[in-house]
Amino acid sequence: MSCLHTISKSPGTQLLESCLKIIASGDAILFIEDGTYYANSARKLEAIDKACKIYGLREDMLARAILTKAADSVELIDTARFVKLCCEHDKIVSWF
């Protein structure tokens, strides 16, 4: 019964911090659009439970010149894999 959380706005919105207040262990987080800026901040990602997988949308990171700066804990995926992740989790909670 896990949940995929998508975060699509930049770190100034504190969306990740809000998400972490109610995320369950075993859920996953996917950074898309401006949310991908979170993916190159290892310090911000430290707050995420180790049981939660972290993904970043490759296309959005490539566009923003941050693909090579992704933290080690972030798995880079494409849109096709985004769809697959939706299938692997029971529901999707979008943070925007």
Binding site: C3, K21, I22, I23, A24, K91, I92, V93, S94, W95
Partner: peptide
């Protein structure tokens, strides 16, 4: 508390968050 909200989300079929 936020723990209760986590449980509500877990028990839901669909979540709208905006």
């Amino acid at each position: 508390d936020s723990d209760s909200i986590t449980k509500i989300i877990e028990s839901s079929d669909t979540v709208f968050n905006l």
